[in-house]
Write a protein that binds this DNA or RNA. Sequence first.
DNA 1: TAAACTCGTGTAAACGATTTCTCGAGAGGC
DNA 2: GCCTCTCGAGAAATCGTTTACACGAGTTTA
Lengths: 334, 334
Amino acid sequence: MDKTHVSIKDIASMAGVSIATVSRVLNKTGRYTKETEERVNAVMKATNYHPNLVARGLRVNRMNNIGIITPDITNEFFAKLVMELQTELFAAGYCSLICNTNENPDMERRHFSMLQSQNVAGIIYMAGSGTFESMTSKGAPTAYIDRVPDFALPENSVIVESDNFSGGMLATSLLLSKGCKDILLLSDKRRLSSQQNRINGYHESHSRAGAVVNTKLIRDLDSVSFGAAYSALGEAISLGIKFDGIFASTDWLAMGAYQAAKEHGLRIPEDVKLVGYDGISAALYNEKPITTICQNTLEIARATVEAVISFIQGKEIAEQRIKVPVALAERETT
Amino acid sequence: MDKTHVSIKDIASMAGVSIATVSRVLNKTGRYTKETEERVNAVMKATNYHPNLVARGLRVNRMNNIGIITPDITNEFFAKLVMELQTELFAAGYCSLICNTNENPDMERRHFSMLQSQNVAGIIYMAGSGTFESMTSKGAPTAYIDRVPDFALPENSVIVESDNFSGGMLATSLLLSKGCKDILLLSDKRRLSSQQNRINGYHESHSRAGAVVNTKLIRDLDSVSFGAAYSALGEAISLGIKFDGIFASTDWLAMGAYQAAKEHGLRIPEDVKLVGYDGISAALYNEKPITTICQNTLEIARATVEAVISFIQGKEIAEQRIKVPVALAERETT
DNA sequence: TAAACTCGTGTAAACGATTTCTCGAGAGGC
DNA sequence: GCCTCTCGAGAAATCGTTTACACGAGTTTA
């Protein structure tokens, strides 16, 4: 039948009009009669015509694609975020190019460059290392989720983040109010902004309660994985550090801490109370469901997509820095 | 400086050659002197030139992109698969367009159509509903992972799947060898090929052991989630169905079954032995790590990408149906 | 030594859309 | 009746590449 693909030219000749008219019908830009419109549409339906987005992209110098850069899609938190971004974007007519970087800055750079070459309409840069600032200035609008870059923001960009400071306070205050005196803080040793803000909240809660923090309680881990927390907790115990509460800055850290505590004969919540962060399902389905700070991924996704689309359409946005509230989910570890 | 983007034309004039020559240097197709090559490359480096992939895509009528259709990226199993596919593809020079369908056939169809419009070089169709066969015939090469479609395969396509039959046998035989007489089987009521093959393995193991299956033991669930297994197990117990072993056809089902069993006072593994399927980390970090059948996602991804790239390059592939071995990970629930 | 290649390079035609002109016809105002 | 406006439609330029073809000059072959 059709050797490759039916093009606008075929539609034009079959409908007895020029390609310009077909294009106008396609984009509903007016300047045609109802009768022509119907005829063209009929032909398009009959031939199962779909416009070639690549050709359009070349002409208008922009693909209706959004690049999403994520550090680790196997982490349920990011996976949920990606899924929700993708759903929102697709509904708005955009397709998502998803790039997994494995927390590797070089991969970030390469994907960034590839996305530019692909002429994407926008870039959503999730939890990036924030270590390089190339290419952002004159390219596609960019949204930074969850971690704030350490360079000056370009014009057409936005930061969307959970209210990590409040989250850190919520978690810490809960533990303090339950009578904890020494709260171990498990955090990533790279002081990414999201982590740093949770730490700031931890400090703020202490000072508001008139409590002092023993700096030994703040443990810097190599990663935010189950294993990192598992061994860090063992180490803290063997160092003789005393604690009766744990604030783990991610749920996977909380899971690892839970397991290590259990193996060392510490009862949760009787001996030690535990709070995680993120709200992933693994924490909910833990032996004892873990109290955690839930991030509102849906709201983050919505705000991000809305901002990016505004930029694409040349509109102004109200805030260049959007904060999304978090919620405490108290469960059985406190 | 540069108002939009430096194009091949700019490079040509700056290097004092024609655009054809620049293009040849770019694609290393020969027909130029070493001296010209160096000059052109120097200019490209100096101007930070990156070829416009959209323009190239239009010209050669194909983007170096691969569409990946996945039912649920928040499921760690699919997330891992996607991540590994993406890594392999990127290394081979392809970018991934990832589409999440939420197990919704209509979404599958829409994403499929969008991918065609994007002129992708290939499509990887993961765990699809397999309910429609449009568009596959003359379009981009397609790989079906994990679930076999129920229509005749088009020429340029391949099926990659875990050896689900062996997996089903491995799980069942283990339970039988541990003395289980009545093995509850938790499976998705949609008889997708991957699930069906595990069920076949379940039956085969029984018949080889000379055991008969009580058909009441085969429970059809609405989904493969924690909650579905949780309530199904409660239901089975309240129906008075006796069992001393459970084969859950996914790890999330196993997690739900574990929880339900525990709440009903059934001890695992003393009263009931439990085997899951997939090998996700949540099963490993369960209160008692769950024995499971691990799928080799890395191998699946490799085989898939290799086959798809072969098709793109017009090569033949050895097998149109590739089976990847599974492995038993025996842990504390058996 | 003429014919036939090879080599480096340039010219120009695609690829499939959008978009700016241009133009004729009919309508309306004076 | 003439001028102007609007409206539907087409012709053609354009986006940034790739690539078929052309073309001299140098090199080989018979």
